[in-house]
Amino acid sequence: MSTALLEIEDLHARVAGKEIIKGLNLTINEGEVHAVMGPNGAGKSTLSYVLSGKPGYEVTGGTIKFRGRDLLSMPPEDRAREGLFLIMQYPVEIPGVPVTGFLKHAVNAGRKYRGEPELDTMEFIKMLREEGRKLGIDAEMLKRAVNVGFSGGEKKRLETLQMTILKPQLAILDEADSGLDIDALKVVAEGVNRLRDDRRSLLVITHYQRLLNYIVPDVVHVFAEGHIVRSGGKNLALELEETGYAEFVKEK
């Protein structure tokens, strides 16, 4: 019997006074990979920000439960500590804050929250270098300031590295393939797939089917006009690639 990890019920949310999500229902069980596909402007990214608690994204109705707890009452840092991770479409540059120091703070904040002892610096750096190597991130890159001067591919690799070491229960990939060439895409997908097991889940938000060749979903949802208009198996993604989103937008 599968356990629900994320339960979204009748979610309504708005940004800058405009309602973007209108009655969304979605349940993701442990170990499942769900893809949310849809046209640009449908509110896909809004969903990822609402889940991660970004200021300015106002929930006006509905509930979200994560591991049985009320997600909406938690600040963003607690959502992350509970095991939610967002791979961002456009990771922000943070001058002066080195990758290694930042990630040590992030890992230890999570460990502290769970009552685990903090990692010492040597242990941490060793682990970080090893995981970095698998993603093609060298020691020099770990010394640089977070995302500063990184190429699009490097930014996504760093996002993937963060996910790898924070080991989330639910990873949300927001247009993880945007700006990536095929090699970088493979590296990111491999990193994500390594994390998959029967307890961890993925929510893959994407406009194109391409990414789903590498991260194969269990369920595909079509998201349009602020809610899910159709759900199906992985073949639905291929179908959409043929037909486009036009019929769903019209359906309104």
Partner: peptide
Amino acid sequence: FYLCSRGI
């Protein structure tokens, strides 16, 4: 937000 979204 970026830092907080990583649990800090």
